[in-house]
Each structure stands twice: as C-alpha cells, then as structure tokens.
Design a protein around this nucleic acid. Structure first.
Lengths: 217, 217
DNA sequence: CTTCGCATGTAAGAAGTTACATGATTGT
DNA sequence: ACAATCATGTAACTTCTTACATGCGAAG
C-alpha cells in the first residue's frame, strides 16, 4: 500500500542528479513531499542498494566546497522508473487521516465534549490555510522547477484544499449547534454506546470504593 | 505518521462489542475503512495485547451458532480511547497517493507518452465515481449506523471526491492537448532531464553493440 | 459431500523510523 | 569560538503484512 521508497528515490533523481541530502530536502520542502515521505535512515541504505542493482551511478562531487555524493540514473534506472510509471496504482483508500478517523469515534467515546472536536477542526483549518498560502506562491517563487505536470498537481491540491476548507467551515458551524440525532441506526447502536460506556465507568468507580470484594466464594 | 492499529481497534470496539472478524469486516466495508486499514495478522495479536493491558475484556459468545470471541472496552479502555481522541493529530501530508506521485515524475521519465497517464487518470475517475455511488447509498442502506459525526465524514468524502472529479476532467482534457511549456524552471532542469535520459539510453545502446571495449588501458 | 464463508490464530519477513555517531563548513 | 547547517552513514527497534495452518457450519 505504502509507496516504495526506491521508486520515490528514482523519481527524485530523475529530476536532477542529487545527493542523499538533496533527496531529503526535496521530500521535506519540495513537491515530492506532498505525496511521499522519506527519512535519512531509509535514503542512504537504499541509495547503496540501488547502486548495487545498477539503477543509479554515484560519484564524488565537489561543487561549491563541500564533498557530496551525486547520484544519477543509469539506462536501467530510467527504464525501471518508466516501468513503474506505466503500472496502475492502488486507489488511495484508506486515506491516512487521523483526525477524520477520530471523528468517526467521537459519538461513542466523547458523547458530551464537542468543544474539543471543534478545536481540532480549527487547528486543521489553520494548517490548511497555511498550506494554501505556500502552494499559491510556489509557481512564482523563482526557485522551484514546475513542469506542466507539476502545475496540474498543484491545481489538484488547491482544489482539494478548497473543498476541505468549505467542509471545515460547515462542520465547525454545525458542531457549535446542539447535537443532531443519528441519520440511520437500525440496531440502536448509538444509544447503546452511551450505556455501555456509562456502565463500564460506573462499575470501575464502585470497584474502587470497595476494593475488598475481589476474592469471591 | 501511520495511525496506530491499537487505536483503530479500540475505536471500532467502542461502536459495538465485536470479534476480530467483525473488526476486519468493519475496516473492509464499513466507514472506518475510509481512514484506516488493518489485516488479520495485526488484529488478533493486538486484541490479545489489549486484553493483557486491561483495555478490553473478551468472552466466548455463541450468538447464532458459531463460536466467536466478543470484545468490549473496560473502563480503562474507554479512558484510553478518550485520551487519544483528545490529542492533536498530525497534518495529513504527505498524502499517500501513488498516482499523483507518479504524475510528478512524468515529465522527466515519460516525456512522450501522455496517453498512458490519461489512461491512469481515467481509471481513477471510474473508481472515484464508484465510491461516490457507494457513499451516496450509505445513509439509507438500512444496515449501517450513522451518527451525526458519521454523516459529517460522509460529507467530507463527498466534497473531496467532487473536487477530485472536477480536477480529473480538467486534467484529462488538458493532457489530450499538445504539451505546454514549464510554468517555472529557473535552472533549466526540465530540458536537461530529457538530455540526461537520452544520453543514458544512447550510451547503453552503443555499449550493447560494442561489448568488447570494456577492458580499458 | 464438498465447497464456500465464518472464525481464529501464528511465524517469518518486509519496510521504514528513531536515535545515535561523526565530521566538515559557513556564518556570527 | 560557537552555533547552525551541510552531509553521510549505522544499528536497533517498531510495526505491520503476507502467507500459512486450522476447523466448523451452512448451502447447494
């Protein structure tokens, strides 16, 4: 499910011959970082392995003053990259989004506390607005390379963020109102959740008050 | 970065007392599956561990005719779940989306072949339309429990999918047209990519034709 | 009577992260 | 002189997945 580190590394090197440090940089602040993550702990070992496999070539380079190891694709590397690009990708569900996941459990575990959820959503809103800002400046920042494809990706993210922000405003407003009843609950699970929770907490509390009653018969 | 399996399991059990198999079911076809994934290989060992930690209680149950082990939260389990819900979540970047990632490398590795990318995007479009359909029927399917929070999640996914589908139509249409020049390319990396690739492939081909010239000096 | 779906589990391994270790160069 | 940044690497560990193993009940 997770995208292979090797492919990300090959892809980034295809953009320009670069060092392990450059790759990390690209993933942290560049466009590739929007859709993948990599740490040094995987970059360097993988670079060695890719070189062993003959997909990349490495050479010491002293551009500037620092010594760095520059990596570039071999013919086999370009072919491996193209082959990967040609294969179909898995549909991106499940979407990794902890906040939304939590929201799905809110009704059962945090029956009363809507304020905390609103707080989470407002934080998300701020962070998304920041990202919108960063993305907006991208095509004119004077440093990033943005191809036609890069521009399409940028538009994808913008469309998605816009939709998310609209939803956030709606959701925050709704949560500030009194709770609404379930939309559909054929097995009456939702009232049962509250009861199960209340019973479990109550039982624990009474056990705490009378701890001597534990060794039965 | 990845959401912890334990929290997902606790969350699903909070919805109703369930077996390991039920949890898998919920993740495959239920709402929780939109934002998390779990396999049997992690569910069963984690259930044992959560029981050992006193966060869940398990009991043999013979509802129906089959023997299953039903799990429910203890007071400590409800508290652990609430505590998790109360903490802030990481911003969901990087977004795990292999297709978009590939698109970012398309210009360097597949300079000519726009048809394959269009094909990928059309497949995505179909899959997203299918999901839209499934989501639309959800609140009236007569079986799923959908709280107010669940309904908000549903609306989130719908907003996001709608934005994605709009973008897909635009992107597919654009890619059917002739290529456009880069939006920004201060270091002229984009033309360089084609040259590096061409040179690497060419070099490999000539080496194949004259394989005897390898032992120099 | 046998195949499919329900149901639980284990063991080996893939893949990546965290934390650590090291050292040079640049800016203040 | 000192800190921050550039730069490369390793080892231990966490976490989850894949593939396998097992068995019962229901349906055809």
């Amino acid at each position: 499910m997770t995208v292979s580190a090797d492919h990300v590394i090959l892809g980034i090197i295809s953009l320009y011959p670069c060092s392990g440090y450059d790759i990390k940089e690209e993933v942290e602040t560049g466009g590739a970082g929007l859709f993948s993550g990599l740490s040094f702990g995987s970059i360097y070992p993988r670079l060695r392995e890719l070189e062993r496999q003959g997909l990349i070539e490495s050479q010491q380079a002293n551009t500037g003053a620092r010594k760095r190891k520059l990596h570039d694709l071999t013919a086999a590397g370009w072919e491996a990259l193209s082959e990967w690009l040609g294969t179909h990708s898995a549909y991106p569900i499940p979407t990794q989004d902890e906040l939304l996941l939590k929201m799905g459990f809110w009704g059962s575990a945090m029956p009363e506390d809507r304020a905390t959820l609103i707080d989470h959503l407002e934080l998300r809103r701020e962070q998304s607005l920041e990202l919108v800002d960063r993305l907006e400046k991208w095509p004119t920042n004077g440093v990033s390379s943005i191809s036609e494809y890069g521009m399409l990706l940028l538009k994808y993210m913008q469309a998605r963020l816009e939709a998310e922000l609209g939803w956030l405003d709606m959701a925050i407003a709704q949560l500030a109102q009194p709770p609404r009843p379930p939309v559909q609950d054929p097995r009456d699970l939702i009232p049962a959740q509250r009861q199960r929770r209340a019973k479990a907490l109550e039982r624990a509390e009474s056990a705490e008050k009378a701890p001597a009653s534990d060794h039965s018969h």
